[in-house]
Simulated assay, not measured.
Amino acid sequence: MSEVLAVIEQPNSIKDFIKQDSNIAFLAGGVAGAVSRTVVSPFERVKILQQVQSSTNSYNQGIFSSIRQVYHEEGIKGLFRGNGLNCVRIFPYSAVQFVVYEACKKKLFHVDDYGGQEQLTNTQRLFGGALCGGCSVVATYPLDLIKTRLSIQTANLNSLSRSKAKNISKPPGIWKLLSETYRLEGGLKGLYRGVWPTSLGVVPYVALNFAVYEQLREIGINTSDTQPSWKNNLYKLTIGAVSGGIAQTMTYPFDLLRRRFQVLAMGGYELGFRYTSVWDALVTIGKTEGFRGYYKGLSANLFKVVPSTAVSWLVYEVMRDSIRNW
Rank of each mutant, 00 (worst) to 15 (best):
G220K: 01
F210T: 02
L157H: 06
I152S: 10
N232T: 04
G116L: 11
G133M: 04
I239E: 02
V202M: 08
W196S: 06
V202L: 10
T238S: 14
R125M: 10
G128Y: 00
T123K: 08
L157G: 02
N232F: 00
G129D: 00
C104I: 03
L237T: 04
Y182E: 06
G186N: 07
K170R: 11
I152L: 11
G128I: 00
I219H: 07
I168E: 12
A139E: 07
W196E: 09
L126Y: 02
Y235D: 04
R183C: 06
K236R: 10
L157D: 03
S229V: 14
N122G: 04
V212M: 02
G116Y: 09
S151L: 11
L145I: 03
T198Y: 14
T198F: 12
L145Q: 05
T238R: 04
G173M: 02
K106E: 14
P197M: 08
G116M: 12
I221P: 03
W230T: 05
R193L: 09
A165Y: 03
T223W: 09
V137Y: 00
Y213F: 15
S169N: 08
L108Y: 11
S179D: 07
N233K: 07
N156A: 05
K176D: 14
K107G: 05
N222E: 13
D144T: 15
G244Y: 00
G244D: 04
A155T: 02
Q227D: 09
A139M: 14
R183M: 06
S243I: 00
I146M: 10
V202S: 03
L126K: 01
R125G: 10
T223R: 11
Y141K: 00
G115I: 10
L177H: 03
K170T: 14
L145P: 01
G115H: 11
S224F: 10
E118G: 05
I174H: 05
Q215M: 06
L191I: 10
A130G: 15
R162P: 00
L157E: 02
Y205T: 11
N209V: 06
D144R: 09
V195C: 08
Q117H: 13
E185P: 03
T226Q: 12
I174Q: 04
H110S: 15
T148K: 09
Q215E: 12
V137M: 10
G133Y: 02
L145K: 10
Q119K: 11
V195N: 01
A207T: 05
E214L: 09
Q153N: 13
Y114Q: 11
T223G: 03
T226Y: 09
P142C: 10
L145F: 02
T223D: 13
Q117S: 14
E185D: 11
G128P: 00
R125A: 04
K170C: 10
Q215F: 04
S179Q: 10
P204R: 08
K164D: 07
I168C: 06
P197E: 07
T238N: 08
G220I: 01
I246G: 02
W230I: 13
E180Q: 12
Q117D: 14
Q119W: 12
I168V: 13
G240M: 03
Q124G: 02
F109M: 09
D113F: 09
